[in-house]
């Protein structure tokens, strides 16, 4: 099978839509589709938990959360609410594409929260940041975001200084990791541009599916789903390609002998078929994005 096909469609999917949130959903849908026998879904659960941990460890005991009123916002907010160890002073939805969020800002400002988390998309967070700046909240409150509150257009349409210190986590390709670098250079040779992180997810979704199909006793959903977790877990030898996995199986190996290492980061699928979260921290310094550490959850 051509794994690059998957990567290519993922790339198309992510370049066609403007906001990274929809790109994420497209990639998610694609990877679900690609691996319908082997549920390798990008997990919002891990991200919500990672955000909760990061904000608490930054010393905020009380947080106000505003989330966009759709599946994306709701699922992330629910996980955040369950996992945040401090006090959640406010956690309410806002409507997409609203023409003003001053009401939400007034309610968030009315709490004692020292941190505000925006679980929303680029247009909405731009309005939030601008209107909060109009009322001076940027000086008192620490802002947090996720993968959809980082975009050059947000910087272009907000006042310098209005989101200084905004910190978030986003899906990020593990740059510097050997198998990712070789994947990226092959991708560039083929398509003339750098892969996005969604391309890497799609590549891994296809590769894991292929290995699981190869390892399964028969080509049915039930027997593939029995082995799909085993081929990603740390019990076996680390493999980086489908070919290497196939060699192990042909030498009489079992699914447990394979530990596929994804180009997008660690894959170790859990009970639900979710990979662990693997994110990079970013923050706004002098009105530019600065990349920080990678975190896993």
């Amino acid at each position: 099978m051509s794994v690059f096909c998957a990567a290519q469609s993922a790339k198309r999917a992510s370049s066609r839509v403007s906001s990274s949130g929809s790109a994420r959903k497209s990639a998610q849908r694609l990877s679900k589709y690609a691996a319908s026998a082997a549920p390798l879904a990008l997990s919002g659960a891990a991200k919500g938990a990672a955000l909760a941990e990061m904000i608490f460890e930054d010393g905020h005991d009380s947080v106000a959360v505003t989330w966009i009123n759709n599946d994306y916002g709701q699922s992330l907010a629910e996980v955040f609410e369950e996992t945040f160890e401090g006090d959640i002073a406010y956690i309410e939805p806002h409507e997409p594409e609203g023409s003003s969020y001053r009401g939400e800002i007034a309610e968030m400002g009315d709490t004692d929260a020292t941190a505000w988390l925006f679980i929303t998309y680029a247009d909405e967070v731009t309005v939030f940041i601008n209107e909060a700046f109009d009322q001076g909240y940027n000086e008192e409150i620490a802002y947090y975001g996720a993968e959809s509150t980082i975009a050059d257009e947000i910087l272009a349409n907000t006042e310098p200084g209005s989101q200084e210190g905004l910190t978030g986590i986003t899906e990020s390709a593990p740059e510097g990791q050997e198998n990712y670098e070789s994947y990226a250079s092959r991708f560039e040779e083929e398509f003339g541009q750098a892969p996005t992180v969604w391309s890497a997810y799609a590549y891994d979704a296809f590769t894991v599916s292929a290995i699981a199909i190869e390892a399964a006793d028969e080509f049915t959903g039930a027997s593939i789903s029995e082995v799909v977790r085993d081929v990603t877990r740390p019990s076996g030898d680390e493999v980086f390609t489908f070919e290497a996995a196939k060699e192990i199986l042909e030498d009489g190996g079992t699914p447990d002998d394979i530990d596929y290492q994804g180009v997008s980061g660690p894959i170790d699928l859990d009970e639900n078929g979710d990979p662990p979260g693997y994110y990079q921290v970013y923050s706004v310094q002098d009105h530019e994005y600065v990349w920080g550490d990678y975190i896993t959850s």
Binding site: S18, T126, F133, D134, Q135, G136, A156, N157, E159
Partner: peptide, 27 residues
């Protein structure tokens, strides 16, 4: 294009004397 844009007018923030006199933010 579909993206967001804005007028090249700088956002001045609150007007200080209104803020101190009335306690509300007016830009």
């Amino acid at each position: 294009g579909p993206g967001q844009q804005s007028y090249p007018v700088s956002r001045g923030g609150r007007i200080p004397w209104v803020e101190s006199a009335l306690g509300v933010s007016v830009t």
